[in-house]
Simulated scan of single mutants.
Amino acid sequence: MTAVSTSSIAIRSYGAHSTADCHRFAQIVLPLAGELSMDIAGRHSVIDRSIAAYVEAGSWHDQVSDVANRSLILDLFPSELDARLSDRLASRPFISMTPEAANLVAYMESVMNRGRLLPHRLKLWIPLLLDALLGEEPQLPSRLARLFAAVEADPSKEWTVEVMAERTGVSVSRLHAIFHESVGKSPRAWLTATRLNFVCHLLTVTDLPVAELAHRAGYSDQSALTRAMRKAMDLTPAAYRRQARAQA
């Protein structure tokens, strides 16, 4: 079976020697420090923190610099990039950074400097970045990513399916369809899994009482959290904490 290619991101630096290349995936070059002289399919510009570059899949490109430089390089495969967005980016490969895009780049730089980047965070970040670079109304993948980020940031909120649909800008029935297509779960099942992942993390790294964790994760009380964990994992919160610490 052929492996499925997925987006990836890295921090790279370039020197004064040509590194001309052509590959089957698109790239977004987001300078962090210094500047790069880039040529993309015959179009040339110098980019820095105020300008990003988009390299269409299959386009020859080159980047050189005589000064110290660092850039975030985002690789995007065609199956992960909406054709309409790809066409808009390819039509103007050198893009002025909006304040929103600059903030997202600064966030990702901070995450990567701290260590390993979890794949789900990159998946959430990409549609937000694309919307910010193009300066347009958020598209559905970005709206869904923002919902995911909002729930992860505040799982204690009363996240009913109706509230999640309103946050995403779709009907309840459409939200169910989107979730089944995107994550293979209903919105409620995804919410439960997200809350339990949050609880499991805190059980492992803190000594907070289970009742406090239940409150932080949006459960009515400790008993409700215990029932949810038993159903999903066949473990109580206390048993999970003991097991996680014994393995550590």
Rank of each mutant, 00 (worst) to 15 (best):
L175S: 11
P31N: 02
S65C: 03
H201Y: 14
A145N: 14
A102H: 00
V210Y: 01
L208E: 09
P31F: 00
E100A: 15
V55K: 06
R84M: 06
S110D: 01
S91M: 04
G115Q: 08
L76Q: 05
S79E: 13
A102E: 00
C22Y: 00
R49T: 02
R92E: 04
V46M: 04
K123C: 03
E109V: 00
E136Y: 04
Q247K: 14
T192N: 13
N113Q: 09
H61R: 03
R12T: 01
H120C: 13
D39K: 11
I11Y: 04
E35M: 04
A41N: 04
R49L: 01
E136W: 08
M108G: 03
R241K: 12
H17E: 15
Y240N: 07
H23W: 06
R167K: 12
H180A: 09
H44K: 05
V29R: 01
R49Y: 00
T6V: 15
L147Y: 11
A106R: 02
C200Y: 07
L235Q: 15
H180C: 05
S45V: 06
S223W: 11
S182V: 15
Y219T: 10
P31H: 02
V46P: 00
S37F: 00
A149I: 10
S50H: 08
S156N: 10
P209W: 03
S71W: 02
